[in-house]
């Protein structure tokens, strides 16, 4: 991490279990200013637990975390806009009153309420009771509440959960806008494409453990895979296995699927085959998508 980037959230050795279930185990994570950090993992991988701990609603068993380089304190949360799981408000209060309560908590003026309702396209429903909103509207109100006071950090836990495709697109649009404005985003999701579309960085969790983390682009670029085929696949496979060009070879539907080693390019493979008097008649670069990596990372050992 470049030194000039300000630390926003730093998690060290965080662990939490519920009775017999380990929710997260020795989690370490550093999130810097301006990053859009995706926390990706299947259901039950510890994403919500992690975010619940850093937003103060549950206590960790072990480890610690710092916000803005300081010990956690309630006042820091006033500078963070959070939506953890489903948004919860007073069902019998209208949207304005519900948001007024949050303004009071954060110590900010009520003037911001109309702006955030507008950006969540809820301005027309501002006088409706929270209980009368549809699921999607409730979720959008949760986002609106997180945006109150224009916080520099957003913590969103599955913000598109339970929304219809239109709602998903709308929420993503709002979140992307915030990221473009330079906000720091911490986004938990089990939807890979969501993280790919929104985030610059990603941490992949599985059963409470951090499997991999880093810039989305780097994780995408790792290990180029190509598929090839020639007249004598088995012979080529044997020769390639003896070379240092590939890490792994698999046969798939009559094709050889090669995981290239470091600096090897597809041209090197072609040249290698030719020098061995084998003519490759099919070669296709499979840019390894994050999705297949994700599925691979999280699949059962």
């Amino acid at each position: 991490m470049p030194i000039d980037m300000k630390e926003i959230l730093s998690i060290r050795g965080l662990s939490k279990s519920y009775k017999n279930v380990t929710a997260i185990q020795n989690l370490n994570l550093e999130i810097s200013e301006g990053q859009a950090y995706g926390i990706l993992g299947p259901n039950g991988s510890g994403k919500t637990t992690t975010l619940s701990i850093v937003t103060g609603i549950i206590h960790q068993d072990e480890g610690s975390f710092n916000w803005f380089g300081k010990h956690p304190h309630a006042n820091q949360r006033k500078k963070i806009g959070s939506l953890i799981e489903t948004p919860h408000f007073y069902p019998y209060l209208n949207l304005i009153k519900n948001l007024q309560i949050i303004c009071d908590i954060k110590g900010i003026s009520y003037k911001d309420i109309y702006r955030v309702l507008e950006s969540a396209r809820l301005a027309e429903r501002r006088k409706s009771r929270f209980s009368t909103l549809s699921l999607g509207m409730k979720q959008r109100l949760g986002i609106a509440a997180a945006l109150l006071g224009d916080p520099s950090v957003l913590v969103l836990d599955e913000p598109t959960n339970g929304l219809d495709p239109e709602g998903i697109a709308e929420v993503r649009e709002i979140v992307i806008q915030q990221v473009e404005q330079g906000k720091t985003l911490i986004l938990a999701s089990h939807i890979l494409s969501e993280v790919e579309k929104i985030c610059s960085h990603v941490a992949i969790l599985k059963k409470g453990e951090l499997l991999a983390n880093g810039p989305v682009k780097e994780l995408l670029a790792e290990d180029e895979i190509i598929e090839i085929s020639c007249d004598r696949n088995e012979e080529l496979k044997g020769k390639l296995e003896g070379s240092e060009l590939v890490n792994e070879i698999e046969t798939e539907n009559g094709l050889l699927v090669l995981t290239l080693n470091g600096n090897t390019t597809p041209a090197d493979i072609n040249a290698f085959a030719f020098s061995n008097e084998l003519v490759i008649h099919h070669m296709l670069s499979r840019k390894r998508s994050l999705e297949s990596q994700f599925l691979e990372l999280v699949k059962e050992d």
Binding site: G56, A74, N75, Q76, K78, I84, F89, Y90, K106, A145
Partner: peptide, 17 residues
């Protein structure tokens, strides 16, 4: 029941408050 203690906490009230 309404999980509103949670909401108040995440937006910046302390448990003592």
């Amino acid at each position: 029941n309404n999980h509103t203690f949670k909401t108040q906490l995440i937006f910046g009230l302390s448990r003592t408050e």
